[in-house]
Simulated assay, not measured.
Amino acid sequence: MAQRVFITAGAGGIGKVIAETYAAQGAQVYVCDQDHRALESLRDGITGSCVDVTDEAALDDWLQAGLAVLGGCDVLINNAGIAGQADPVEALDLAQWKKCLAVNLDAQMITCRAIAPVMKRQKSGAIINLSSTSGLFGAPFRAPYAAAKWAVIGFTKTIATELGPYGIRCNAICPGAVSGDRMDRVLAAEAQARGVTPQDVFEDYASGSSLRRFAEPEEIAQLCVYLSSDAAKFVSGQAIAVDGNTETYHSV
């Protein structure tokens, strides 16, 4: 039976690559995203709806609609995230803090709250929550993002203990810097601020990992596929870094 896979923010960036990887293997893939145009470009085998994950009712409606169409959920991937405010702690704005946590953390609770009873009835399932290496290290001037990503790991480990007796596995993935449009913008902005080239900034960031490069989106997608497969049927409650082994940390 084809896996039934739900992915938040699944029409662009890492989420799109994850969705396409599952679809290529014959899975039924159901995504949400807030980008109308990106949703229109989804390949065959991927169904999507426009949803703001900070809208609790809209997110719940998306989940229930997917469950009605697919008849269940085998894999839930919480991929939605935003960078949040980048300022010293004394300059943090409470509204921006709450928005960062709403996207990066609260949305994961809402989806897990809806999907857990379904997976309990099935006595099977895999939940994968996207954290970050910012959930493993302190990140100066990125307190909202780091706090949310640390919380994702705590949330994941907790629900792993709750859901494990029902045969449900819960893991967190912690990417480092990942190649793509978002990191290109980060490199360009920092290069401009520092008066250097984007290549200089890339080399600075890449030198912080033992493998001296960024992750590729496909490498995140492949780990998702592994964690939701029978090959990982005894892997749960883990926070797994895909970062080339961080030696010197740069917040991403």
Rank of each mutant, 00 (worst) to 15 (best):
T158F: 05
I159N: 00
I159Q: 04
I159G: 00
I159Y: 03
A160C: 09
A160W: 04
A160V: 08
A160T: 06
A160F: 08
T161C: 05
T161S: 06
E162M: 01
E162W: 01
E162D: 09
L163E: 00
L163S: 01
L163M: 01
G164C: 04
G164W: 02
G164K: 02
G164E: 05
P165W: 04
P165I: 01
Y166G: 00
G167Y: 03
G167C: 05
G167I: 03
I168C: 01
I168L: 02
I168D: 00
I168Q: 00
I168G: 00
C170D: 06
C170H: 05
C170I: 02
N171W: 01
A172V: 10
A172Q: 08
A172Y: 08
A172R: 03
A172C: 12
A172D: 05
I173R: 01
I173D: 05
C174A: 12
C174E: 03
C174L: 10
P175V: 04
P175W: 01
P175Y: 06
P175G: 10
P175H: 09
P175S: 10
G176Q: 05
G176T: 06
A177D: 06
A177E: 07
A177Y: 11
V178N: 04
V178W: 01
V178G: 05
V178Y: 02
V178H: 02
V178A: 04
S179R: 13
G180A: 08
D181M: 08
D181H: 10
R182A: 09
M183D: 03
M183T: 14
M183K: 11
D184F: 11
R185A: 15
R185I: 09
R185N: 14
V186M: 13
V186R: 09
V186D: 13
L187S: 09
L187K: 10
L187V: 11
A188K: 15
A188P: 12
A188E: 15
A189I: 07
A189S: 15
E190A: 15
E190C: 09
E190S: 15
E190G: 04
A191M: 11
Q192R: 15
Q192Y: 04
Q192N: 12
Q192E: 15
R194M: 14
R194F: 06
R194V: 08
R194L: 14
G195T: 10
G195A: 10
V196K: 12
V196I: 14
P198S: 10
Q199Y: 07
Q199W: 08
Q199F: 06
Q199E: 15
D200E: 13
D200L: 08
D200Q: 11
D200C: 08
V201N: 04
F202Q: 06
F202L: 12
F202M: 10
E203V: 09
E203S: 15
D204H: 12
D204F: 11
D204S: 14
